[in-house]
Design a protein around this nucleic acid. Structure first.
Length: 874
RNA sequence: GCCGGAGUGGCGGAAUUGGUAUACGCGACGGACUCAAAAUCCGUUGCCCCUCGGGGCGUGUGGGUUCGAGUCCCACCUCCGGCACCA
């Protein structure tokens, strides 16, 4: 009777659900383990096989930890606000709520089909009033601590989406979603003061067990740099001053000109009459240039002189003031003192515009030819002369402070977080705008502020967000004063809900507070957080920021929310590509098509190899590809397709649906395959051809336990032969190590070895059979529970105890060593496990093969590596 | 350009602190069972040479350290990821 996964898997999934096997409650008598997956946005296309890799990993570990006696919390929920549902609403008029509910249903069914051990009683949904209420409640806390403020800031306005985008949502001047053009516009926006936490966000990274690469990305993103602020007077403009930030205040004497960002507020004021036209033109040109253009010619500096002059704070030297787009308005003070001798960018600019270059740090070659950015002794620097860079920095900062011309200062790349969006499908802000222009909070008792109903989800196209259309919602009264008030028509970004969901999971139905102190004390922090590296900076930085604010409020007891972080590598798919010249996507009948070998990529743009004409990549759905022999070919044209391995996505036609895999092979096979593909952190292409190997493994296990008639196969009583007992002990020890180290691929290979060898010298012993089902159960829980039951037990292995290896079976009497002569393997020798060097040497010298290769010489040196090898050098 | 990470059979990948390179799986080939096929089981499978005992070469490339290097050092090549004038 062959193994029928469908029947067994359905049976056990129903059992787990009925008996609430994965329900977790606070239990102070047990250590806790909080395993968390990054909760998904329930998109309309459902899951592909890439998504569950991380979920399966946490599931395997959670099941393992539970059997090791931990009280495991492993919840799942929905990050359900988001642009796609709103876009869909704009196109079809379907309310996002409806779309979202439908998508969640599909996702949940797919996740349940994977046999994941979620405690579904803790399911959360960021769009539900009972959740949104507390998101708004946290916003109130931020506001009360002056961490939320309104500001007029230039924002990335995307007319097509009718919304403002965060900097990180804009790529090459286009929206990350949909690639629509984005323009910079000043707008009144909610900002969160994340910069106030910059230092702590850097420093506390030392406390967490995260991949170094991710920590580094966060540090770089925050971009702390130490230096000084220095004030320069503008000549002849009573009182006008330019403040600059520099990391090299020691080079102050080398400053030969000043540069302002074109957007700098002083530009307008200080520009002299005859420079005005050129300056205005340059400012306009900069505003028009896309970010992509500006990056493209990083080495070609441009700029214009303003005609104004600054005065050196020490020497009084006259420094011409320029504007140039290599100075960024948003970093530091938006202005620099330029030291061309010791900064490459300043050097390039000075050369371009023939500005003077003065050496003030010794150690470089000819600073007229090339900037010297290293450290050294100060020269041409008055009272700094002879001081090394670090000391010179200290001295000049003292001078600046004493004379009131500046001070030591720290600057960050990190900017405050633009926290409002002009969308419908998000959390409304719990604030009221009063007639006098002031802002007040909606009282705690009136939360949540719910979204009004809306018939038309289209952006207004103006700066008015969709919520602005609902006058009856916007116009209200301030409950404190009875005055007329207007609600805020912005909504929060998608990050808001995901910033704190891990805290709601610990106490998801609490309607008195967002979570109880008791639950927080017990469950936090998250012990293992698993999710894609694409969230390396944004989500992880934002939630760390909120967590620190909650820490300061005494609402959480750990500085950091996520103790250990794991980024599963992506599962890739094979996609099939060609090119055509239909750049505008008009699909004309006469569009010319090209195979990959006629095309080359130039600066990321595909172009025809010969003509240089720009082309566009097209993909054929994997299912539609025609194979001519081995060659993938276009379904209707005689055109060879290029095989590309890339991230699975609908548009590339390379997605594999887990439902199909489960239908054909069963869930346990899918789980094993994904865990067997390689190390979790590594990405690998999906291969249908490898799956049968794992299905065969499960069949082999089944036949080991179940005979042809479907009855339990005969088992040897007890521990079986010595070899069997040793095999079992080794398998327990090694797979346990692998589970602890999250090396599920090698754990599986050890289970395969066990299955291959256990019945070599007689029927499998009962002890081995029982222990094996336990070792198998985190990975293939359905089959394991079924076998456990057939062994005469009742209930699920989920609540059983992990086996311990019999340590007496782990020590060997004799061991095999490799005998090398001059570093080359020549023979294997058997030695007593406790043999000393002399014994090993004697046994090795007794080997015929060793003697043959020594050629009668006496070894001059003998190296014995205990338990490994003996090397005779002669 | 800068910063990370990785290059091991036809393929996915194993390999304590430097200590038998290629475990396990896929694929391929041969065999058993079968009227036949599927399924299953057994065997072979890095490359080259061989008198069938064995020998030589092999972890991206070129050097080095060492009794011994996939692992350490130097230089380089390729791929993947991140950042992109951050003063």
């Amino acid at each position: 009777m062959p193994y029928d996964p469908r029947q067994v898997e359905t049976k056990w999934q129903a059992y787990w659900q009925k008996h609430r096997v994965f329900r977790s409650e606070i239990d102070p008598s047990k250590p806790k383990f909080y395993a968390l997956d990054m909760f998904p946005y329930p998109s309309g296309s459902g899951l592909h096989v890439g998504h569950p890799k991380g979920y399966i990993s946490t599931d395997v570990l959670a099941r393992y930890k539970r059997m090791r006696g931990f009280n495991v919390l492993h919840p799942m929920g929905w990050d359900a606000f988001g642009l796609p549902a709103e876009q869909y609403a704009i196109e079809t008029g379907t309310h996002p709520q409806e779309t979202t509910a439908r998508n969640i249903e599909v996702f949940k069914r797919q996740l349940q089909a994977l046999g994941l051990d979620y405690d579904w009683s803790r399911e959360v949904n960021t769009t539900e009033p009972s959740y949104m209420r507390w998101t708004q409640w946290i916003f109130r806390k931020l506001y009360e601590r002056d961490l939320a403020y309104l500001a007029e800031v230039p924002v990335n306005w995307c007319p097509a989406l009718g919304t403002v985008l965060a900097n990180e949502e804009v790529i090459d001047g286009k929206s990350e979603r949909g690639s629509h053009p984005v323009v910079r516009m000043p707008m009144r926006q909610w900002m969160l003061r994340i910069t106030a936490y910059a230092d702590r966000l850097i420093d506390d990274l030392d406390e967490v067990d995260w991949p170094e690469a991710i920590k580094k990305m966060q540090r770089d993103w925050i971009g702390r740099s130490e230096g000084a602020r220095i004030v320069f007077d503008v000549e002849g403009r009573g009182g006008n001053q330019i403040e600059v930030f520099t990391t090299r205040p020691d080079t102050l004497f080398g400053a030969t000109y000043m540069v302002l960002a074109p957007e700098h507020p002083l530009v307008e004021e200080i520009t002299s009459g005859d420079a005005r036209d050129a300056v205005v033109a340059y400012v306009e040109q900069t505003a028009r240039r896309s970010e992509r253009d500006r990056i493209a010619d990083t080495f070609e500096k441009s700029g214009v002189a303003t005609g104004a002059t600054a005065l050196h704070p020490i020497t009084g030297a006259r420094l011409p003031i320029w504007i140039a787009d290599y100075v960024l308005a948003t970093y530091g003070t938006g202005a620099i003192m330029s030291v061309p001798a010791h900064d490459e960018r300043d050097h390039a600019f000075a050369r371009r515009f023939a500005l003077p270059i003065i050496e003030v740090v010794a150690g470089g070659d000819d600073v007229q030819a090339e900037a010297f950015t290293g450290e050294g002794a100060a020269v041409n620097s008055d009272f700094l002369d002879g001081l090394h860079t670090a000391e010179a920095k200290r001295r000049i900062c003292e001078w600046l402070e004493d004379s009131g011309r500046g001070e030591a200062s720290v600057s960050y790349k990190l900017r405050d977080w633009l926290f409002s969006r002009q969308r419908y499908w998000g959390e409304p802000f719990p604030v009221l705008h009063l007639e006098d222009g002031s802002t007040t909070l909606v009282p705690e008792d009136d939360l949540p502020v719910l979204l009004p109903e809306l018939d038309d989800f289209k952006p207004t196209g103006e700066f008015e967000p969709p919520l602005g259309r609902v006058k009856t919602w916007v116009e209200t009264t301030d409950p404190a004063t009875g005055q007329p008030a207007r609600r805020d028509t912005n909504t929060m970004p998608q990050w808001a809900g995901s910033c704190w969901y891990y805290l709601r999971f610990i106490d998801p139905t609490n309607d008195m507070e967002p979570w109880s102190r008791e639950a927080e004390q017990y469950w936090m922090p998250v012990d293992l957080y698993v999710g894609g590296a694409e969230h390396a900076v944004l989500h992880l930085l934002y939630s760390r920021f909120w967590h620190k604010v909650l820490f300061d409020l005494g609402l959480v007891h750990t500085k950091e929310p996520f103790q250990k972080l794991l980024n599963p590598g992506m599962i890739l798919g094979y996609s099939y590509r060609y090119f055509d010249d239909d750049l505008a996507d008009e699909k004309p009948a006469d569009a010319r098509v090209y195979a990959a070998n006629e095309v080359e990529l130039r600066q990321g743009t595909p172009r025809h190899r010969e003509s240089g004409e720009e082309l566009k990549a097209r993909w054929v759905q994997a299912a539609d590809v025609r194979f001519v022999g081995e060659t993938p070919t276009h379904p209707t044209l005689d055109l060879e397709l290029e095989v590309v391995t890339e991230k699975m996505s609908k548009s590339r036609g390379n997605v594999v649906n887990p439902d199909d895999v489960i239908e054909k092979w069963g869930t346990d096979t899918l789980r094993l395959y994904e865990m067997f593909m390689g190390p979790i952190e590594k990405g690998a292409p999906w291969s249908d051809e490898s799956i049968p190997g794992l299905a065969r493994f499960l069949q082999r296990i089944w036949r080991l336990f179940v005979d042809d008639a479907g009855a339990l196969a005969p088992l040897a009583e007890g521990a079986g032969s010595d070899a069997q007992a040793r095999l079992l002990a080794r398998t327990i020890r090694d797979t346990t190590d692998d589970f602890e180290g999250l090396r599920f691929n090698t754990a599986i290979s050890k289970l395969m070895v066990f299955v291959r060898d256990v019945a070599d010298d007689g029927p499998m012993p009962r002890e081995a059979a029982e222990a094996f089902t336990k070792l198998l159960s985190p990975l293939a829980p359905h089959l394991a529970d079924e076998l456990w039951e057939r062994l005469g037990h009742s209930g699920s292995l989920a609540r059983e105890t992990w086996p311990e290896p019999d340590s007496s079976k782990l020590v060997e009497d004799t061991i095999t060593l490799v005998a090398q002569v001059n570093g080359k393997r020549r023979d294997e020798i058997e030695v007593p496990a406790d043999a000393d060097e002399a014994t090993v040497r004697a046994i090795a010298l007794a080997s015929e093969k060793v003697q043959q290769h020594l050629g009668g010489r006496e070894p001059s040196k003998v190296i014995v590596v205990p338990g490994r090898l003996v090397n005779l050098v002669g």
